[in-house]
Every structure is written in structure tokens, then in C-alpha cells.
Lab assay of single mutants.
Amino acid sequence: LKHLCRKALRSFLTTYQVLALPIPKKMKEFLTY
């Protein structure tokens, strides 16, 4: 489930946009992995 969620997010968010999100650092590391 997490993998699918990440894949969906990565499909419409660039790494830069993910880093700009107001989310915890650990979550950013997970999303930009």
C-alpha cells in the first residue's frame, strides 16, 4: 500500500515539490527515495 501511495505521489509531484511540502523529514525521505 505504501509503495502504491508513493508511486501515485511521485507521478504528479517532482522531487522539488515533495521537499517543499510541510511534512516530516522522514516522510520526505520516503517519498523521494
Rank of each mutant, 00 (worst) to 15 (best):
L1P: 00
L1I: 08
L1A: 03
L1G: 05
L1Y: 05
L1V: 07
L1F: 11
L1S: 02
K2W: 11
K2T: 08
K2Y: 07
K2F: 08
K2V: 11
K2R: 02
K2N: 01
H3F: 01
H3V: 09
H3R: 12
H3A: 12
H3C: 07
H3T: 12
H3L: 08
L4F: 08
L4D: 01
L4Q: 07
L4E: 02
L4K: 11
L4Y: 12
L4R: 12
L4H: 11
L4P: 01
L4V: 05
C5P: 06
C5R: 10
C5M: 12
C5I: 14
C5E: 01
C5K: 09
C5Q: 05
C5A: 12
C5L: 14
R6G: 05
R6P: 05
R6F: 07
R6E: 06
R6V: 12
R6W: 09
R6S: 06
R6L: 11
R6K: 12
R6T: 07
R6C: 04
K7E: 10
K7P: 00
K7I: 08
K7T: 04
K7Y: 03
K7F: 02
A8L: 12
A8D: 01
A8G: 01
A8V: 10
A8W: 10
A8E: 00
A8F: 06
A8S: 04
A8K: 07
L9K: 12
L9M: 08
L9V: 11
L9F: 06
L9S: 08
L9N: 02
L9H: 10
L9R: 12
L9T: 10
L9C: 04
L9Y: 07
L9G: 09
R10E: 11
R10G: 04
R10I: 07
R10D: 10
R10A: 12
R10T: 09
R10V: 08
R10W: 08
R10L: 10
S11Q: 03
S11H: 06
S11L: 14
S11T: 09
S11F: 15
S11G: 12
S11Y: 13
S11R: 13
S11C: 13
S11M: 13
S11E: 03
F12G: 02
F12I: 09
F12V: 10
F12D: 00
F12N: 00
L13C: 05
L13G: 02
L13V: 10
L13F: 10
L13T: 05
L13P: 00
L13Q: 07
L13Y: 09
L13R: 08
T14N: 05
T14V: 10
T14A: 10
T14C: 04
T14R: 13
T14H: 10
T14I: 12
T14E: 10
T15F: 14
T15V: 14
T15L: 14
T15W: 15
T15C: 10
T15G: 06
T15E: 07
T15S: 05
T15K: 08
T15P: 01
Y16F: 15
Y16A: 15
Y16I: 15
Y16E: 15
Y16H: 09
Y16P: 03
Y16K: 13
Y16N: 14
Y16T: 13
Q17I: 12
Q17H: 04
Q17F: 12
Q17E: 13
Q17R: 09
Q17C: 10
Q17S: 09
V18Q: 14
V18G: 13
V18L: 13
V18K: 15
V18I: 08
V18E: 13
V18A: 14
V18P: 02
V18H: 14
V18T: 12
V18Y: 13
L19T: 06
L19K: 10
L19R: 07
L19P: 07
L19E: 11
L19I: 06
L19C: 06
L19S: 08
L19F: 08
L19G: 07
A20F: 04
A20E: 10
A20G: 15
A20I: 15
A20K: 12
A20T: 06
A20N: 11
A20D: 11
A20Y: 09
A20W: 13
A20L: 13
A20P: 09
A20S: 09
A20H: 12
A20Q: 11
A20R: 14
L21S: 10
L21H: 00
L21K: 11
L21V: 00
L21M: 08
L21F: 07
L21Q: 09
L21W: 10
P22A: 15
P22S: 14
P22H: 14
P22F: 09
P22N: 15
P22R: 15
P22L: 15
P22Y: 13
P22D: 14
I23E: 02
I23N: 03
I23C: 05
I23R: 04
I23Q: 04
I23M: 12
I23V: 02
I23L: 08
I23Y: 01
I23F: 07
I23K: 03
I23W: 11
I23G: 05
I23D: 03
P24T: 03
P24V: 14
P24L: 15
P24S: 01
P24G: 03
P24K: 14
P24M: 13
P24Q: 04
P24W: 15
K25T: 06
K25V: 05
K25M: 04
K25R: 03
K25Y: 02
K25A: 06
K25C: 04
K25E: 06
K25F: 03
K25H: 03
K26Y: 03
K26A: 11
K26D: 05
K26P: 07
K26V: 09
K26E: 06
K26W: 14
K26M: 07
M27A: 02
M27Y: 02
M27L: 13
M27E: 00
M27C: 04
M27I: 12
M27S: 00
M27T: 00
M27V: 11
K28C: 09
K28H: 05
K28R: 11
K28F: 12
K28W: 14
K28L: 14
K28V: 12
E29A: 05
E29K: 03
E29F: 00
E29D: 10
E29I: 05
E29G: 03
E29S: 01
F30C: 01
F30W: 15
F30V: 02
F30G: 01
F30P: 04
F30E: 02
F30Y: 05
F30R: 02
F30Q: 01
L31G: 01
L31R: 00
L31E: 00
L31M: 04
L31H: 00
L31P: 01
L31Y: 00
L31T: 01
L31C: 01
L31Q: 00
L31W: 05
L31A: 01
T32P: 03
T32N: 04
T32A: 12
T32L: 13
T32K: 14
T32S: 09
T32D: 03
T32W: 14
T32C: 12
Y33V: 10
Y33S: 14
Y33R: 14
Y33M: 15
